[in-house]
Design a protein around this nucleic acid. Structure first.
Lengths: 202, 202
DNA sequence: CCGAGACGATCAATCGATCGATAGACCCGA
DNA sequence: TCGGGTCTATCGATCGATTGATCGTCTCGG
């Protein structure tokens, strides 16, 4: 059942998915009509429904798979790493790198949560909570072992995540700092915030 | 011409404004219909148009006045303060306090920028740029006088602002940290990020 | 000749916005 | 103190346009 192609070169299902990410990110879920979606995917609005059950389910799928992939990557990245400082470093670098590489997708995940139906929202928020627990644990471990010095770890975690999420709002590949340079800088900022020693002590 | 009141106790124009802030913040601009707006303001959808020229202009007015008030407050707060550390402290405390006191209004300002028409957007972004310049200047001054140690001041400013903006997404008055406690904690975080000495050196 | 992929036409519902009308408060001249 | 005129606030009804979604039909490779 070799997937049929067309003008765009990509299979239609993928075109729909990509168009949805771009449009939901720039105009918002409610600001995007299925006709916009169809035009961006080079399809009629009727054909769209061969690739999605519903506009809302398309959004939910995008958010669910994006978040799940982030959670999986983070779990893998942390596997076998014991040093809390290294754990936090890796979380920040992964998070920032992803947000800089796919700002559109990330913006959808971060901003469109309450366009979801209650059922979809439960799923999505569940994955997000699991991901954020990795951050909480890293901070708690660092505090327990004495490498971090911060009062209010819960609030600091929120500040940390908000700071890293912001990258998706403004990052542009043409900037003075590339993706990896940016990630390193953010890792430094994170260390400072939790009171961990800087990367190369000298 | 004493402003007429009604069930809500408040004048109708203010009810419209408040309802718009709450609905735009929770359901988004495009997710809010004028009938939702009318219901929340205890008016018919027709009467709504005595208090706003257009749904989009209502949004623009909310954003413009909110941002202008923030800019004015910040300018006043900084007046006569020379020490860069103190300047940054005041910016953070003001910003965080406002975001915690009026999270709804802030969420509208932060998230609905691209629901505006190009003309409105120019106005709003202009005010926002002026506000953010206060932050840039504070950081640059601190660097020039040697109290701050951070490479990439531009990126650090963005990280700082994103961190502080996040407060509006999750703050709840019932939390363990009150508004002022939260603001103080964020001021500490900001000092750490720019490499300034902590608040009470001992 | 069948099924997947595509479409134009169209559905009911809702959208933002406007209409003409009404009820009541206020002012001013007689 | 009355009466008429004006103005503000409000509404039900309705406008044309657009929304998300569905229908039946066509096409074409296997």
């Amino acid at each position: 059942m070799a997937v049929t192609k067309q003008a765009g070169g990509r299979p239609a299902g993928e075109r729909v998915h990509r168009a949805a990410v771009k449009l939901f990110a720039t105009k918002g879920f409610h600001g995007t009509g299925i006709r916009d979606l169809a035009k961006a995917a080079n399809l009629s609005s009727a054909s769209l429904y061969h690739y999605m059950p519903t506009k809302e389910r398309l959004l939910a799928d995008i958010m669910r798979t994006s978040l799940q992939s982030l959670l999986d990557a983070a779990t893998g990245e942390l596997d076998g790493v014991d040093d809390p400082v290294e754990r936090l470093d890796r979380l920040v670098v992964l998070h920032v790198t992803r947000h800089a590489r796919e700002p559109m997708r990330t913006r959808v995940v971060d901003n469109e949560v309450d366009a979801l139906t209650p059922a979809s929202r439960r799923d999505v928020v569940g994955i997000r909570d699991a991901y954020e627990k990795l951050w909480s644990d890293a901070i708690d471990d660092g505090l327990r072992s004495g490498v971090f010095t911060t009062t209010r770890p819960a609030t600091t975690r929120l500040a940390l995540l908000d700071m890293c999420n912001g990258v998706a709002r403004w990052f542009s590949p043409g900037g003075e700092l590339g993706r990896s340079g940016l990630a390193d800088h953010y890792a430094d900022l994170a260390r400072r915030m939790v009171g961990a020693p800087p990367r190369q002590p000298r």
